[in-house]
Amino acid sequence: MTVRSVIAGTGSALPARRVSNAELTETVDTTDEWIVERTGIRFRHIAAPEETTATLGADAARKAIAAAGLEPSDIGLIVLATATPDQTFPSSATKVQALLGIQDAVAFDIGAVCSGFLYAMGVADSMIRTGTAKHALVIGSETFSRILDWEDRTTCVLFGDGAGAVVLSAEKDSERGILSSSLHADGGHGELLYVDGGPSTTGTVGKLRMKGREVFRHAVTNLASVMGIALEQAEVDASEVDWVVPHQANIRILEATAKKLGLPIERVVVTVAEHANTSAASVPLALDTAIRDGRIKRGQLLVLEAMGGGFTWGATVVRY
């Protein structure tokens, strides 16, 4: 008997405020043409003071639980991926737990920046298969607007806020579910994408810093490689993939990665124009968007992939 973690439901949440490139040009020295040509981004959502990583995560979680046909009390595990927690502690996962009214569950945060959701999926999958929980809530939620330097036009135009969530449920001998997960990290490149603060160093939150050209080069190479590894582990060929659901960092990265794999861009879920880079939230946001608009259908083969600061990167093959 084999236990698999099956995606039972998905959900997402975006802050109410939607900011266009044109609006950004009123305060940032940039243009709509410059942003679109280099990134493909046209809009991003920015959290209001009362909207936090935990509240957005809870909103996405409620939708995922409802889509799975479950109640919050059915959830036994909450893994929340974020680089922008509400507080140093308690974890944002426990805050989501309280907002959902769940009395008892395993709940914790995980930090792998843009790859965080895939790391969280891998951890939850392992815990489900060992019997820790029957139903797990995996969330990617970020309020990156809180750590942006709004005078740095090379970074502040790239990011947005949002949350995405999936419910993973244990199913015996199912053909669906997570087929493979390949996760990696190389701390030798930490200076290319980082936040210049933290409790143990500066005692401040800090601001995001990035060397974009170097990050781009590593992203294309690492993502194409890790997707190949994950597909090989799942014993499926790239030609069998129905949809790639990638981290939404930059349209050029998405196009270059698809080309390296020999996949048409039409089989890549692209939401970067509307959401910008929402870090750990970007993969579940894109996944929920494509499921709800009917592009992704039950039984289709998906590859989820991401790379983030650290560097961390990974890919997960899922039969939806």
Rank of each mutant, 00 (worst) to 15 (best):
V3L: 15
S5N: 11
V6I: 06
V6W: 01
I7P: 05
A8H: 07
G9C: 11
T10H: 06
A16R: 02
R18K: 13
S20E: 07
S20T: 12
S20P: 11
T25K: 09
T30R: 07
T30V: 12
I35M: 08
G40N: 15
G40F: 13
R42I: 04
R44C: 07
I46P: 00
I46R: 00
T53R: 00
A54V: 01
A54Q: 00
T55R: 00
T55L: 01
A58S: 02
A61R: 07
A67V: 05
G69P: 10
E71K: 11
P72G: 09
S73C: 08
D74F: 10
I75A: 03
G76N: 04
G76E: 01
V79D: 02
T82R: 00
A83H: 04
A83L: 15
F89C: 02
S91T: 09
Q97E: 02
A98C: 06
I102N: 09
I102F: 05
Q103S: 15
G116E: 02
G116S: 02
L118K: 04
Y119N: 11
M121Y: 11
M121T: 15
S126E: 10
S126P: 14
I128M: 12
R129T: 07
G131D: 08
V138F: 01
F144Q: 08
D149F: 05
D152K: 03
C156L: 01
V157A: 00
V157N: 04
D161M: 00
D161Y: 03
G162H: 01
A163V: 06
G164Q: 03
V166N: 05
V166A: 13
A170G: 06
D173T: 06
D173H: 09
E175L: 14
I178M: 11
I178T: 08
A185S: 15
D186E: 15
G188Y: 08
G188T: 10
H189G: 15
H189V: 09
E191F: 09
L192R: 14
V195W: 01
V195H: 00
G198Y: 12
G198C: 02
T201D: 13
T204N: 13
V205G: 05
V205K: 13
K207F: 14
L208F: 12
M210I: 06
F216G: 14
V220Q: 09
V226A: 03
Q233K: 13
Q233D: 10
E235F: 02
V236Y: 08
D237A: 14
D237C: 10
E240R: 15
V241G: 05
D242K: 08
V244T: 15
P246C: 05
N250E: 07
N250S: 11
I251K: 12
L254I: 14
A258Y: 10
A258W: 07
G262C: 12
L263W: 09
I265D: 13
I265C: 14
T271Y: 03
A273V: 10
E274Q: 12
E274P: 01
H275V: 15
H275G: 05
A276P: 04
N277Y: 05
A286R: 10
A286V: 01
L287N: 02
T289M: 11
R292I: 03
D293V: 08
D293H: 11
R298M: 03
Q300M: 11
L302R: 05
L302V: 13
V303D: 14
A306E: 14
A306Q: 07
M307F: 10
G309D: 06
G309N: 02
F311Q: 06
T316S: 13
R319Q: 12
